[in-house]
Design a protein around this nucleic acid. Structure first.
Lengths: 358, 358
DNA sequence: CGCCATCATGTAATCGAATACATCGCATGC
DNA sequence: GCATGCGATGTATTCGATTACATGATGGCG
């Protein structure tokens, strides 16, 4: 069926600048017929232009452009068993922290001819798995996941998965993340250096290893300063602004005394600042606040937020580089790459005021 | 080649709970061989279970689960000519406005068995086009674009494209967006009602029709109030926080007199507030600020931002519903669906202070 | 002059699943 | 007892590209 008919044979010269051929979905066969060559030649003209005779190539390219042909990627990918597509899984696109990581991923991806598709998982295992299945189903070559779970993909050997921002215990999975223990410790060290003695901590979800690390950093820093770790000053939240608000509300309602709060991410810190000010407490005069991540909004809160800046772009770039390496050679040994994060001091921190609060 | 060999024949009963068969990539042929049926039966057992005999079906399903078989989606999609995948293009994932729109899109998509992949375009035509080509290349069924451009896709008839949040002139493209003229007008009406007479306007990129509309709403509201439209009070920006900052800096450095600023989006409003306060002007006592979008952070600025709330979730839901409708029946007439946006009054607006400023 | 390398191109197999059509067995009706 | 229909399954084609291998033309060289 589908015999080109009408056109075909000797069309190339005549119709070059004729009215645009009505846009249609074309196949390589049609292009071959119009250009009077075989499908193999068309394919070669598009894939490895250097092996086809120049005039033939130009003729084919002209036809392709004129009739508007886009090769069917499904057929091509089926045959070649690669898609040049990778999926980046992020828990929450509303979290500005990930934006820049994504940007880093995309930069490196494009340099190597990969496209990036984003999947929002809302931390749901089901949805993580659904996107991961795209790899099993051969719709994508690999995955960068920004959660602390590795989806199951039935495959031989190494999974084409790289973990970014978080990390998993599985030694086989390459990860890029920051030294959360050290970074959190540095933040608390700074508060201690300012003179704070009662430092509250708003933790993230305990299911996430990096949150455990941030808490560990907090504890170690207190120990270094010979300060007691007071469980009553430790609350946990789910990374949302509201959670930060609730955490501080809780501390205040319990009548806890503290002159600084260290939060496991910036959004909770923003919530914390809000709760403080709605209780008439000034930041940083009455209470200092430190966040983690350095999201874009952190410098626009008032006062601007002191926070631990993760190298977001580098995290993304490095993750993608690792994935590309892995896709090129499944034998490369897995690595855990640890970057460093630096404290950025802004206006939300100051020495504690002499008069004891509350 | 590839004769299953070893196993095959009569394995089903014996190995049911044997040690997991080493994970490998399977094909429908292998499954058929292991289950002792034809590929057609395996395919049917998976696609239309009701047409295969129950015992056969159970046997096949058991094998599928045991050896870990995921059908090759490329092959399937190639054959069936549909992917059940749609791509949502957004200019900037860092912009929290889009997050909720995406969420609406995903909700409806999943209800109808579609998966959503996100493509960040950074407003680059090239990148928009690259993602759009996925449709031409049959890797996705349709596109929801949140920019004011419609990518070119060589296809017969209606393009499987829906426009959300923005809109394009092209009558053939369905769109969902809010009545920006009315919404901007309502915001300015409110400022007028509070007593403001000198209202500055920070516009968005003039290339975007919705920005033109917001400006039109501003002008009309001023006219309704018999106030002059003063070009000196109108500045434009690119939707970033920094742009809002720069816009207000400019007005102040020019010595312009105004008691309120209406910004085309929340991020510019946040920038505006920052510029005002860094010049010692209090919001709202000295200058009132109104934004547009109602992003999540809008209620956490201090003071909380008065803004025009777009029905973000509904925009997403409606866009996806339209796309699904369109994919099911390319004949449905295109529609421009206009939702309404409501002013949310928070703390950044107040009547102008009696003493003239500057 | 004939052999062979080289270049350009064509033919046909292939990727893995879906499915139209064919086949087979068996029960039902006349 | 035989035609009919139906349910269950198998055979073989198809989707649209890539690519190994075959073929044919050309030219250089001994």
């Amino acid at each position: 069926m589908s015999s080109e008919g009408s056109r075909g044979k000797r069309s190339t010269a005549s119709a070059t600048r004729a009215a645009a051929t009505p846009a249609r979905v074309r196949t390589i066969k049609e292009i071959a017929a119009i250009a009077n060559v075989s499908v193999a030649t068309v394919s070669r003209a598009l894939q490895r232009p250097e092996v086809v005779n120049e005039t033939t190539r130009l003729r084919i390219q002209e036809v392709v452009k004129r009739v508007g042909y886009t090769p069917n990627a499904l057929a091509r990918n089926l045959r070649t068993a690669r898609t040049r597509l990778i999926v980046a899984l992020l828990p929450d696109i509303a979290n500005p922290f990930f934006s820049e990581v994504i940007r880093g991923i995309e930069q490196v991806a494009h340099e190597s001819g990969y496209s990036v598709l984003l999947g929002e998982t809302q931390s749901s295992l089901v949805r993580e798995q659904a996107y991961a299945d795209m790899v099993a189903a051969r719709q994508a070559d690999g995955i960068i996941t920004m959660s602390h779970r590795v989806p199951k993909i039935p495959m031989p050997g190494r999974l084409p998965v790289v973990n970014a921002c978080e990390y998993v215990k599985d030694k086989q999975i390459s990860s890029v993340y920051v030294d959360n223990v050290a970074a959190a410790g540095a933040a608390v060290d700074y508060l201690v250096m300012l003179g704070h003695r009662q430092i509250a901590f708003v933790a993230g979800p305990p299911s996430s290893p990096i949150c455990v690390d941030r808490e560990k950093g907090y504890r170690l820093a207190l120990q270094r300063a010979k300060l007691a770790v007071d469980p009553a000053l430790m609350v946990s939240g789910d990374f949302s602004i509201e959670a930060g608000e609730r955490a501080v509300e809780l501390l205040l309602s319990q009548g806890q005394s503290f002159s600084a709060v260290f939060c496991s991410n910036d959004e909770m810190a923003i919530g914390a600042m809000r709760a403080l000010s709605s209780h008439g407490l000034r930041v940083p005069e009455d209470v200092s606040v430190v966040g983690f991540d350095d999201i874009r909004f952190a410098r626009y809160t008032s006062p601007a937020l002191t926070t631990v800046a993760q190298p977001k772009n580098a995290l993304g770039r490095e993750a993608m580089a690792m994935l590309i390496e892995l896709l090129a050679d499944p034998e490369v040994p897995p690595r855990k790459r640890v970057l460093s994060a630096d404290l950025v001091v802004r206006g939300s921190t100051a020495p504690p005021s002499p008069r004891k609060r509350k």
